[in-house]
Nucleic acid binder design. Structure first.
Length: 483
RNA sequence: GGCGCGUUGGUCAAGUGGUUAAGACUCCGCCCUUUCACGGCGGCAUCAUGGGUUCAAAUCCCGUACGCGUCACCA
């Protein structure tokens, strides 16, 4: 009988969801779901100093909108409740005491000052084991004296500890490298190093999926499992997500590289589906060349073998491409639901925003770009007459002026102001006048748009502007060219 | 600094001893075309480095370099 896979995502509530954390959650979720397993969400809020109010909601909300559903955890509950560590304090205390009794842990009464001076003497993070061998009487005396204390894990003096990571293979560390880390802090809260082990065991987690910053500290956790006599879980460490700065240097993805939280990305106009699709492929790849994945397809395809060992650089260009593809695939009603409110907000009343939205559909990478792409609609841009010069169509400011003067009355008397009618009208003029269609279109488009690169052609834009504004703009253009 | 992990084009990557070293993004060119975009076609560009092992190495071994991570009463 093969065991049922149980994975978890255990974020600490910091107030925002880093994209790297989201990817960890995704992989953890996918690993469970790819094998019909269970996925648990647990909140690790043991750092009271850095606690942020309402931060838990950000986590829940992000997972919901990305489609990562937890089988056990906050809101949905489960047989291992509670799922918030600050509500599990007695459990950690109990298990820590067990280790003290068995000799795998000990009380430490060293003051912050003493620890600080140690740093100067024996280097970073050193602890000299000062309280390692206190007698039971000394401990009891200190306790009755009310001295503050922590509980430390007693590391073996010699030997090595190793484990086999599912991604990186065997990892071995000399026990002499391991510090007697703190399990229970002076404020009674446990540290991550201790409580995640207890919780993972108690909750039946079979596969620990997390970033590879834990790769070298995992032997300490293995030792904890051993001390309790528990079976060690499988470890799946993930390559880190990197960012590249202006100088081309890479480092762990952080705010200096741009928007790095899920919410930032959404606010910039990225679709959750596109974000998930992109980050799924940052550090994982399937054997085939498929690029687009729905969450269901990811659940089907995901496997540990596809995980990469080397760090991946987050590339905003590729995210943009994914996003533009997802926008193009969006059905009209869903696209309009997002685009129309933005256009309504920024466009003058005479603008046909429905038509403009259609033009923009295949031309934006993010919804945040709409304002920029539509700037010429919102304002009459400053322009110079050299925009009228186009080599391919052999246009010049002079011949454009002539075209505009001749076209203006035709437009003024036009009865239908839709794209097809306007296009037919200008085509007819082109045939009658013997001018190239492209040249006519160019003159009209520049005159009304006042911009070289526009979403859509001359007649499409006239439809967007409506008759009155189009003609008004054209008259302005004629005046400027004449002067 | 000690320890650990990593290194295929600018980026994401496939590749598990014999391949013309896939594919995608970016960039460039061409076609389509009322500009731009979309779409279609094509192109530039990669196995960090030095030694081995082997008939044969991007693939296996060792060294070097570089990068990253980690050494907290943070997670």
């Amino acid at each position: 009988m093969s065991e049922t896979i149980v994975t978890r995502f255990a974020p600490s509530p910091t107030g925002f969801m880093h994209i790297g954390n989201l990817r960890t959650a995704l992989y953890s979720y996918l690993l469970a779901k790819s094998q019909g397993g269970k996925f648990i969400l647990r909140i690790e809020d043991t750092d009271q100093v850095r606690h942020v109010e309402g931060a838990e909601d950000v986590i829940l909300q992000t997972l919901k909108t990305t489609g990562i559903e937890w089988d056990e955890g906050p809101v949905v509950g489960g047989e291992h409740a509670p799922y918030v560590q600050s509500e599990r304090l007695p459990i950690y205390k109990e298990y820590a005491e067990k280790l003290v009794k068995s000799g795998h842990a000990y009380y430490c009464f060293c003051t912050a000052e003493r620890l600080e001076s140690l740093k100067n003497d024996i280097g970073i993070g050193g602890y000299d084991g000062h309280c390692r061998n206190l007698t039971a009487e000394e401990v009891a005396q200190n306790l009755t004296d009310g001295k503050p204390y922590v509980i430390r894990q007693r590391m073996p003096d010699e030997g090595t500890t190793s484990y086999v990571d599912e991604v990186y293979g065997e990892v071995s560390i000399e026990n002499s490298e391991l510090r007697d880390q703190i399990m229970i802090k002076a404020d009674g809260y446990p540290t991550y190093n201790f409580c995640h082990v207890v919780d993972d065991y108690l909750m039946g987690v079979t596969h620990v999926v997390r970033g590879n910053e834990y790769l070298t500290s995992t032997p300490k956790y293995c030792l904890l499992y051993d001390a309790f006599g528990w079976e060690r879980p499988h470890y799946v460490h993930l390559p880190l997500l990197m960012g590249k700065d202006a100088d081309g240097n890479v480092s762990k993805l952080s705010k200096r590289h741009g928007a790095v939280s899920f919410q930032d990305l959404v606010n910039d106009g990225y679709l959750p589906e596109a974000i998930v699709n992109y980050i799924a492929l940052l550090g994982w790849a399937s054997k085939d060349t498929q690029e687009f994945y729905t969450m269901d397809e990811l659940k089907q395809s995901f496997s540990i073998e596809g995980l990469s060992k080397s760090p991946a650089v987050f590339d905003y260009e590729k995210l943009k491409w994914f996003n533009s593809e997802y926008i193009k695939k969006l059905p009209d009603d869903q696209y309009n639901e997002k685009a129309l409110p933005i256009l309504k907000e920024i466009c003058p009343d005479y603008v046909n925003i429905e038509k403009l939205a259609v033009l923009l559909h295949t031309r934006i990478d993010t919804f945040g770009e709409i304002a920029e792409k539509a700037d010429f609609v919102i304002n009459r841009l400053d322009m110079t007459s050299d925009l009228y010069t186009n080599k391919k169509n052999k246009t010049t400011p002079e011949n454009c002026l002539e075209t505009l003067k001749e076209v203006l009355p035709l437009l003024e008397s036009a009865e239908n102001w839709d794209n097809d009618s306007l296009f037919a009208l200008l085509k007819q003029y082109s045939a009658d006048s013997g001018k190239k269609a492209g040249a006519v279109m160019w003159a009209v488009r520049i005159a009304i748009a006042r911009k070289g690169i526009t979403p859509g052609g001359a007649t499409e834009l006239m439809e967007v502007f409506g008759k009155e504004e189009s003609i008004s703009r054209m008259k302005l253009a004629i005046d400027e060219l004449t002067a």
